[in-house]
């Protein structure tokens, strides 16, 4: 589903990501953990095609993002750490805009908007301007918009921040459903308990370098993910 080979990205003389390689298969929820400034967001942005990288290759379903960014973007969805959305639109207008760009027909979009806005309890507020939304509501709207075109790979940067416990739980179920249907999820998080319970695989990044990755049991063994992470960070 996603192949990252030897990804390197520098900001001036500082290497934000240094030779990172990672493969994510269909059906996997892949957690990406690391301290602030470790290179998680940079990696996610490179995968989404909104940031050029210096070296390496990224392929989504076998399509190189460098050569065919638009084709790759049809297969993915991205939710940034801070979901800045169009505040001049209402929630429903934003979703319809996203659906128009992805060419989703009226019946399908109506059905999906109804389904996911019900699940995340945002339906009643869809007629409100996004400027009136709280952070959590914006996050929910960003999640619905990401799920709208039935993406193969969903990339999320700290998706649980701002969500209430019920919405967090719903999101976890939605993530699992995507993977059960042959998709994959790649997300960064600081909440290690969530990563431990939710992820099939996990990667730990430190100063731009991948220091450990694999299935949850391969990475943490009998210890907790938190203790392994803290040990690796030292």
């Amino acid at each position: 589903m996603l192949k990252i080979n030897n990804l390197t990205k520098s900001y001036g003389s500082k290497k934000a990501v240094d030779g990172l390689s990672l493969h994510i298969n269909a059906g996997e929820i892949y957690g990406f953990i690391g301290h602030n400034g470790a290179g998680k967001t940079t990696t996610l942005k490179c995968v989404t095609g909104i940031m050029h990288f210096d070296e390496g290759d990224i392929e989504i379903c076998g399509i190189p993002i460098k050569d065919k960014p638009t084709d790759c973007k049809r297969l993915i969805a991205y939710i940034p750490d801070n979901p800045d959305l169009y505040e001049f639109m209402t929630g429903i207008k934003f979703l319809n805009f996203v659906a128009d760009i992805y060419g989703i027909d009226s019946a399908t979009r109506d059905e999906r908007i109804s389904k996911y806005s019900d699940l995340l309890e945002l339906k009643a507020d869809l007629a409100q301007p996004i400027s009136a939304y709280s952070h959590g509501m914006k996050q929910k709207l960003a999640i619905i918009s990401a799920w709208l075109h039935d993406p193969k790979l969903i990339l999320m940067d700290e998706p649980f921040v701002g969500l209430d416990p019920k919405a967090s739980h719903t999101l976890k179920l939605m993530m699992r459903e995507v993977c059960d249907n042959g998709g994959a999820i790649f997300f960064s998080t600081h909440v290690l308990e969530v990563a431990e319970k939710l992820c099939d695989k996990v990667a730990i990044i430190k100063e731009g370098k991948l220091i450990k990755s694999g299935t949850m049991s391969e990475v943490k063994g009998d210890a907790s993910l938190e203790s392994v992470f803290l040990e690796l960070e030292e």
Binding site: T90, G91, F97, A99, D100, I101, D110, K123, A124, A127
Partner: peptide, 23 residues
């Protein structure tokens, strides 16, 4: 404003972009 479900209308990509600019 309370949202009431109704059938949406699909627009082309360029029309959607223009509408967004005007909004």
């Amino acid at each position: 404003a309370v949202y009431h479900e109704k059938q949406s209308k699909q627009s082309g990509i360029f029309a959607a972009l223009i509408k967004k600019e005007f909004k």
